[in-house]
Design a binder for these strands. Structure first.
Lengths: 117, 117
DNA sequence: CCTATGTATTGACAGACGTGAGTTCAATAG
DNA sequence: CTATTGAACTCACGTCTGTCAATACATAGG
């Protein structure tokens, strides 16, 4: 048995009182947090949030050519935002002839929505 | 009455059929979309989402010194994330002596949560 | 006063983001 | 085949983001 090291800091808590209740944190959260943050990040742009809003209001599928004029943006930029939403799993797309139709995948928002409530 | 201009594009819709129902979009959405996108953007990082999660689970206020060890990040980085959450209006802070305590402002999430549901 | 401790800020950096101009790709009409 | 049209991709740009090291700030104890 050795003596206690004298070099150890004398007082980490000035008055000996803890600053607050200890917070323990189950590691299980990590993966879920990353999934939900992906959703939140995709919704973290006003244009994309409005795109999702329009798509949700029209339960059916909406053509890109109808989406572009709603925003004061170039068609490539709107396409870019739609791609982001697709990569986040929030929307899906379908091609019919020349036109591409987008729609919201409702289940993609469920987990995040439930956590937020 | 004049004759129709010959220079006008002959067919905008190849088969004369519209690509989809017209989508009209009330301008009222803009401001709300920006507010909600601000919230979503702040939640669009796994660390910040976990911070909010921890703060919400502990209904009371939590000291920064308890938050830092939960994440494999430097103290300044955690402080930076907390600042982002504060700027988005999601959390508030209070100083007691040396320590700073953070807490979630529940109302801040209401509008976004309601829209998402 | 001086020292120690908890928190916030600054500076720097690589990487990601939002945007438009220009281009390419895919599919239809002729 | 060619021409046209809707959508996606590429490149470039300035801006913003997440991170840490170092520093500054604020409060408490001696």
């Amino acid at each position: 048995m050795t003596v206690d090291l004298e070099l150890a800091p004398k007082t980490k808590r000035p008055a000996g009182e803890p600053c607050c209740e200890p917070v323990v944190y189950p590691d299980v959260e990590r993966e879920q947090a990353e999934r939900m943050a992906t959703i939140a990040k995709a919704l973290g742009d006003p244009i994309r949030l409005q795109l999702v809003d329009v798509l949700r209001k029209h339960a059916g599928k909406v053509c890109v050519c109808e989406l572009v004029p709603l925003f004061d943006l170039s068609q490539p930029t709107v396409s870019h935002h739609l791609k982001k939403l697709r990569e986040a799993g929030i929307v899906g797309s379908e091609r019919r002839g020349l036109w591409a139709y987008y729609y919201v995948i409702p289940e993609s928002l469920e987990e995040f929505s439930a956590w937020l409530t």
